[in-house]
Design a protein around this nucleic acid. Structure first.
Length: 281
DNA sequence: TGCCAGGAATTGC
DNA sequence: GCAATTCATGGC
């Protein structure tokens, strides 16, 4: 079933696609302004952008039911306006940043497990190499259905030996992290789905008990996996560099210098982080 | 070539 | 408890 709808607020779909294009796993087509989304139920939904930033409209193709359509709307931030968030930053030091990236949504990843694996794989690696490793991970153990890659099952990764991932240029530690977390999920000790009903702090507290998952990874999971609006990974080198540039410093800002701005930016820290990342990409 | 990268675990005091 | 160190590998 296909459905067409429009949004009553500013939404820049081209910028959304821009960011999605940075993820090698996601099937973005810039020419047709579309993205193909592998759904948990096995089908692939196509989302097409039709309108303009000021008058955005979309077509959702091939959703199996209304619930899937609603999930797409939630995933792509169609269910809540961006204007109020942008307005919140008027008068702050990030006002100009929010003007430059007006209408850029915080899009949730299509798979909670995939987001966690991606986050671990990206730890402490330059984006270029991290994306190479990520794509190698997906192409080796995931499935390509209707031309769209989907992340492997936790069970598949849980069964791997460290040496297999080492052969694909994972470090020993990174291989241990990825396999260990996958084992926890496949054995039922770790349930990612239940986190959607929990507070940020509770989710973080539980996630960081797993080896290889620290604060940065937990915060990324909350932000991009669950779409939570108020996280800012202090440990992130990219954010530190972005703030260094915006604030005109000759060094990276300290943790306390960043923390001092949290009262101004809350409760939308995630959007500040997202736009700061965009500013250096 | 050496430092760095959208960190985390481990060690040392 | 907190900081310094180690881990690993490609990118630039």
């Amino acid at each position: 079933m296909d459905v067409q709808f429009s949004l009553p607020f500013t939404y820049d779909f081209d910028r959304a696609l821009d960011r999605l294009s940075g993820d090698p796993v996601i099937a973005v087509n810039r020419e047709s302004r579309s993205v193909r989304i592998p759904m948990k139920e096995g089908n692939v939904v196509t989302l097409l952008g039709k309108g303009t930033t000021c008058s955005p409209s979309f077509i959702v193709e091939n959703a199996v039911d209304e619930r899937q359509q609603e999930e797409i709307k939630s995933t792509f931030h169609f269910d809540r306006p961006l204007d109020g968030i942008s307005a919140h930053f008027k008068g702050t030091d990030l006002e100009q940043l929010f003007r430059e990236h007006e209408g850029t949504p915080l899009i949730k990843s299509f798979s909670l497990y995939g987001e966690l694996m991606k986050s671990i794989i990206h730890q402490q690696l330059n984006l270029s190499f991290a994306n190479t490793l990520l794509m190698r991970f997906v192409e080796s153990y995931g499935d390509k259905i209707d031309g769209v890659w989907r992340y492997p099952s936790p069970e598949r990764i849980a069964s791997l030996d460290v040496t297999e991932l080492r052969d694909k240029q994972f470090s020993t530690r990174k291989a241990e992290y990825v396999i260990g977390v996958s084992q926890a999920i496949s054995e039922g000790r770790l349930d990612l789905e239940k986190f959607s009903g929990m507070e940020d702090a509770e989710v973080t507290a539980e996630l960081i008990t797993y080896r290889g998952v620290g604060p940065w990874t937990a915060q990324g999971f909350l932000m991009f996996g669950l779409g939570r609006p108020n996280l800012f990974p202090l440990a992130d080198i990219g954010l530190q560099n972005a703030l260094k540039r915006i604030w005109g410093l000759d060094r990276k800002p300290t943790k306390d210098e960043i923390l001092a701005h949290f009262p101004d930016w809350s409760p939308y820290l995630s959007y500040a982080a997202l736009y700061l990342w965009r500013s250096i990409e």
